[in-house]
């Protein structure tokens, strides 16, 4: 049983069918590269995995459990979808950092908000306990609760910040923790965006052409970070135009064209021995582009 199983994902916008039945599996710790010419539906697929779009049909299983089934979940509530989303992370082509926050705050914000919601739930629990307690015991109980809650809150804050600093070290930007996004190069911004996505420890991290908005000399540092994540056992899906990267880093490659998986296999199979004529043509074209 694979870690991630996608079964028959379809998606249409109006009259155009953008995904025409996508099925694939991914093992834990593997890196999947998705290649293909633009308009093929790669971004739409990633957006469906992160529930920014809802697939029209299809089933998503994670770790053997059905996380999403279009039949039932088409009308899932906002809260349900948010919870499903947390299994996935997404790094955008355009970084999309929050400009008004420092690098550190960009990374800690989402986790802090989740922790706050947790904390509030705990407070409500405590209040219920207090109401149920006999009157003469309440004062003592209240003092005890106060102590515990303060401990939780301080602990959360420290844990979140330490986690963020560790991630910043991993993407090599410790000294930029107090900088604002506009003070960083594109490559640095993208590395922060990767750290931000990692902060919520998603089961699967998706990248949508993470280097396409960067100057050529900056792509290397970002690809290096992604490659570094592989050795730490992250499961990743990377949509990319960097064929060398796909060849060297991916365990599995999917070539998408016109909303279907035209070909898939190991990098060696897809790059050295493409079975489909479309794949071969695409690969020829992308090597030609390299020498333009």
């Amino acid at each position: 049983m694979a870690f991630l199983e996608i079964e028959n994902y379809t998606k249409r916008f109006g009259n155009t069918e953008v995904l025409k039945g996508i099925s694939f599996t991914l093992e834990k710790g593997e890196v999947l590269a998705i290649i293909g010419s633009s308009g093929g539906g790669k971004t739409t697929l990633l957006r469906c995995l992160n529930f920014l779009e809802m697939p029209d049909t299809g089933v998503l299983r994670l770790n053997g459990e059905t996380l999403f089934d279009a039949e039932q979940d088409r009308r899932a509530s906002d809260a349900d979808i948010r919870e499903k989303r947390l299994h996935f992370g997404l790094v955008f082509q355009q970084f999309n950092l929050f400009p008004q926050y420092t690098v550190l705050r960009n990374i800690t914000l989402a986790q802090t908000l989740l922790a706050k919601a947790d904390y509030r739930a705990k407070c409500a629990e405590c209040r219920a306990q207090l109401r149920a307690a006999p009157k003469d015991k309440r004062a003592a109980l209240r003092a005890e609760q106060k102590r515990v809650l303060a401990q939780i809150r301080d602990g959360q804050k420290q844990r979140i910040e330490e986690n963020a600093l560790r991630l910043l070290e991993r993407v090599g930007l410790t000294e930029k923790k107090n900088a604002y996004p506009f003070e960083l190069s594109g490559g640095q911004q993208q590395r922060v965006a990767i750290a931000r996505a990692l902060a919520l420890s998603p089961d699967i991290l998706c990248f949508d052409e993470p280097t396409s908005a960067l100057d050529p000399e900056l792509t290397g540092e970002v690809l290096k970070v992604i490659k570094g994540l592989k050795s730490s056992d992250s499961t990743m899906i990377v949509v990319t135009h960097e064929m060398e990267f796909a060849k060297n880093v991916a365990d599995h490659v999917i070539f998408m064209a016109d909303g279907v998986i035209e070909e898939e296999g190991t990098p060696a199979e897809v790059f050295e021995n493409p079975k489909s004529e479309k794949t071969a043509a695409f690969l020829r074209k992308s090597t030609e582009d390299l020498f333009d």
Binding site: N50, R82, Q94, N96, F98, L109, L113, R196, A197, L200
Partner: peptide
């Protein structure tokens, strides 16, 4: 992209409005 970044980080609509969008 600002809204979507908030969404994939599990934020609620109101968190996205008040924490991400409003000051901008």
């Amino acid at each position: 992209g600002q809204y979507e970044a908030g969404q994939v980080l599990g934020m609620t609509r109101s968190q996205i409005f008040f924490r991400v969008v409003l000051l901008q």
